[in-house]
């Protein structure tokens, strides 16, 4: 080959991608078949937008959002506590935390929601000193049962996510923190936790999106979220598919919105160092404290 050869004088032929054409054809065929079946199906398409914007369905979206945000917030808080407890030097505390994760990762959320909902069968009264005394049924509403069931399950998974974040922090920095005399709690709060965010936030976004859909199991206790509100309509008028398609549209819309949000947050996270990003966020939430 001559030296300094360039491609200038030649035409470059890209590799032909026949396999792309074949897969495109296959995809079109499958989609075409699907559309053909749907077109022949007896679906009253025009009613779907009506259901999707009906007050019952819209209130169901509110319920889904409440339950999702509530379960995630409580699950995150508990998960954080359990993850920190897991790393405690106190072996009683760390083993208790491990047992907690083992238990709540093992119980299906559906079963846990039902257990909470029916707790009054075995514990008819609740007594919290100085705060509350009364019938269990007054406290454990469908929302509370669903919230507890989902949040406890979520907290077991969140604690594992947070723990992965904690493990990812450079042990050298922890030694340095010890060497200047920071207390274990201050090391956790000021050195470890801010630096876990980079690792913890992406999977937390995933969990949130999963919870949007997972919250539909509150159907079993008739909490008014999207799935049970849909059921309310179709058990009356038997337009099952139309109503469920309306709900589907909303679920997909919600997950799309939150996926975009997640994408933004992760991008912002990549563009800064994890900790400085965390502190910027924290400063916005609670100015002056960080």
């Amino acid at each position: 080959m001559p030296e300094n050869s360039t491609h200038q004088d030649f035409e470059i032929r890209p590799l032909p991608h026949y396999e792309r054409w074949i897969s495109a054809l296959l995809l079109v065929a499958v989609l075409g078949g699907f559309v053909y079946v749907l077109a022949g199906a007896q679906i009253k398409w025009s009613t779907i937008p009506q259901y999707a914007t009906s007050t019952i369905i819209l209130s169901g979206i509110g319920g889904t959002m409440y339950l999702t945000i509530g379960s995630m917030a409580l699950g995150l808080l508990l998960g954080l506590i359990v993850a920190i407890a897991r790393g405690s030097q106190n072996s009683v505390v760390s083993n208790a935390a491990a047992a907690y994760v083992w238990l709540f990762r093992g119980i299906p959320a559906l079963v846990l929601v039902l257990l909470w909902f029916n707790i009054a069968l075995v514990v008819p009264n609740v007594w919290i000193p100085f705060i509350f005394y009364g019938s269990t049924n007054d406290i454990v509403t469908p929302f509370v049962a669903a919230l507890l069931g989902l949040a406890l399950t979520e907290s077991a998974f969140m604690s594992e996510i947070v723990r992965a974040g904690i493990i990812s922090v450079d042990p050298g920095q922890i030694e340095a923190a010890k060497s200047i005399g920071l207390s274990p709690w201050k090391i956790t709060k000021r050195v470890i936790l801010p630096q876990t965010l980079k690792v913890v936030i992406p999977p937390t976004g995933n969990e949130f999106i999963a919870m949007l859909k997972y919250s539909s199991i509150a159907y079993v206790v008739a909490y008014q979220e999207l799935a049970s509100q849909s059921a309310k309509i179709y058990t009356q008028n038997l337009q099952v598919i139309e109503v469920l398609l309306a709900a589907t549209i909303w679920y997909v819309a919600l997950t799309t919105i939150f996926s975009i949000l997640q994408h933004w947050i992760e991008k912002a996270l990549r563009d800064t160092s994890g900790g400085s990003f965390a502190r910027k966020m924290m400063r916005n939430i609670a100015p002056g404290r960080f």
Binding site: Q173, G181, A278
Partner: peptide, 17 residues
């Protein structure tokens, strides 16, 4: 006690954030 004894590490160990 540790706060009265300084330490400098091979790998610096500055707080990255």
């Amino acid at each position: 006690q540790r706060s009265q004894i300084g330490m400098v590490f091979q790998s610096f160990n500055l707080f990255a954030h």
